[in-house]
Each structure stands twice: as C-alpha cells, then as structure tokens.
Design a protein around this nucleic acid. Structure first.
Length: 311
DNA sequence: CGTATTTGACCGGCGC
DNA sequence: GCGCCGGTCAAATACG
C-alpha cells in the first residue's frame, strides 16, 4: 500500500498480501475490503462492533450495509472462506485453529480478519484442544467424545513497535512459539481474570515487521479490570467490552482506539474519558499523524508518559 | 515473597 | 504408523 495505506481500512479476511503472512497467520484467507475511513464511519458507527463483525463475516451484501461500501468500490483480495475452501488448502494447513478471524484495519495499520465462526458456530473443522481449562498434561482427556468448541476469533493487524498492545485487560503470557517461515515468534497470552478463558496470540508480520498481528479468541466474561493504569474500564459501551449479544467475540478496546475516527465515536456515545489504556502506540501514532484535535484533551485523559513519543 | 515471564517438553490433530 | 506442527503446560527463572 502506499502512503495512504495507513488509512485504508481492511475488513474481513486476511489483509496479508503475501503468502508468508497467510501461512503464519493461519492460511485462512477470506476476503479483504479496503475502504476509506470516510466511507466507513457513518454506517459503522451506527452498529455495534459485534454487529459489524457478524454481519460482515457473513456476506458481501451485509458487508456493504455495514460499511456502506460495495465490492465494486473495494478491493477483494481473496475469496470468502466459506465459499472457497480451496484457498485454505492452497495456503497451508496452518490455521488460526481452523477458523478465521475478523480483522479490522486501524488508522495506521491494515487489519485483516478472519472469522469463520464469529457467530459462535461450532467449529466445523478440526477442533483443537485447549478447552479453556482443565487441560493439563495427563488429564487432557476431559471432553473425550465431546467436540471441543472453538471460540470465536478476531484478529487484526496493527502497526506498532511493541508486540503486546495494551487493550485494557490483563494478560498473562503462557507460551511462545517460533512461527514457520518467519523470524518472529508468536506469543500466547491468556486473560488473567479468573474463569475468563479468553486468549490472544500476538505475532509480528514477517513481511512487514512493523505490523503486529493480534488474534483474540473467546469472549471476556467480565468487565475491564479497574486496576489498569489509564483504565479503560467503564468507558466503553458495554457492547464493546463484553461479549456480544450475538455471541461473537468481544472487541478489544485497542481496536477501537485504532479505528479511524474512533475518538469521534467516543465523544459521541461514551464519556470521552480515559479510554486509552497504557501504551497505545498505534493510537499515539494515529494522533500524531492525523493531528487529532482532541490532543489536548488526551493529555488530560492519558498519562503523559503514554502520549510522549516513544521509544 | 508473590507474580509474571521464559522456555523446553508434551499433547493431540492432521497429512502423508 | 510416523512425523510435523500449533498450542499448552509447568518448572525454572526473572522481576517488583
């Protein structure tokens, strides 16, 4: 993408333009929509994110409604997963767990997503282990016979220096693996809140090292921790912070922060409080790049250390 | 000393 | 059946 690439908005499907990323990310290639923020805002803001997710993950038609765009005016880089399984086979066996996740672009990043079961549908493919808990070595048997249900996933790409973006929740790293065909490792995080089985994976794009691919899996069954610095708890509309009524994945606050004109939305429907968690580098970048008018306000809301130019 | 991270081993699914 | 691979566990280690 060109200079304006940062403002492009990619929706659904992998925004990876290369095989490497597709493979490492899971090989699930749905479709990619690229639209300008301006065309996205209005319709998008009238929907809950989950609505958008679900809607968009269904078909182009819905997507058009959701984003006010039409396939003709956007670029489709690959086919929808449901309609074209060959894509997956071609790309590779690796996957995001047999599903795709929805990906959304950020102001200064492109987002791709894949969500084959954003609707909480059962995993048709392979079912992975995990099960959320009780999966210890030794007694992993647990749900034998029962098919493990796959959590909805949501992935997005972010231009960021830091691998682990703050999103308001507390995460505990429980693993790291080398990614095939990529010099960058993939890190596995789990929400530290008890009984919350949400997980997320973070990896850096091989083709574009400045891009971080974050994949969320599951839904938070609790509000944002209030202990966060620059806490974002209570500042996001419930629909954004908790599981969606449709059963889709909950949206990571960081995503909103990175969404084009997100600050407008915040001013509109939520208290323009300290919605930003710590280390929101992408947002910071966005702020710097686009000279967000509310910058002054941000300083009031966000600890200066978070706004200062980074590393 | 409690908590978080690191890291090698292990598990289970899948392709061949 | 075997090997590969993604994902997870958990002991060791680091960090506050």
């Amino acid at each position: 993408m060109s200079d304006h690439g940062f403002r492009d908005f990619y929706y659904h499907g992998s925004a990876f333009n290369n095989d490497q990323d597709q493979q490492s990310f899971g090989g699930e290639t749905d479709s990619i929509y690229r639209v300008s923020p301006s065309s996205v805002d209005p319709p998008y803001m009238n929907m809950s994110f989950s609505d958008c997710l679900h809607t968009t993950s269904m078909d182009y038609g819905s997507l058009e409604k959701a984003f006010g765009l039409s396939p003709s005016s956007s670029e489709v880089f690959s086919s929808l997963e449901g309609g074209n399984r060959t894509t997956r086979q071609q790309v590779g066996k690796e996957d995001l767990g047999g599903n795709t996740a929805d990906v959304i672009g950020t102001p200064n990043s492109s987002i791709s997503s894949s969500s084959s079961e954003a609707g909480c549908e059962e995993d048709s493919d392979k079912s992975k282990k995990d099960g959320g808990e009780s999966s210890k070595k030794g007694n992993k048997a647990k749900t034998k016979g029962e098919k493990k249900q796959r959590e909805p996933r949501f992935a997005f790409m972010t231009k960021s220096e830091v691998d682990h973006l703050e999103d308001g929740y507390r995460w505990r790293k429980y693993g790291q693996k080398a990614v095939k065909n990529s010099p960058y490792p993939r890190s596995y995080y789990r929400c530290t809140t008890q009984k919350c089985t949400v997980k997320k994976r973070v990896e850096r794009s091989f083709q574009d090292p400045s891009t971080v691919i974050t994949t969320y899996e599951g839904q938070h069954n609790h509000p944002l921790p209030t202990t966060l610095r620059g806490s974002a708890a209570g500042l996001f509309p419930p629909s954004m912070l908790t599981q969606s009524p449709l059963g889709g994945p909950s949206f990571p606050p960081e995503l909103f922060m990175q969404m084009p004109n997100y600050h407008h939305q915040m001013h509109t429907q939520a208290t323009a409080g300290s919605i930003f968690a710590q280390n929101v580098s992408p947002f910071q970048q966005y702020v710097h790049q686009h000279h967000v008018p509310d910058y002054g306000l941000l300083q009031d809301m966000v600890p200066s250390r978070f706004l200062k130019h980074e590393p």
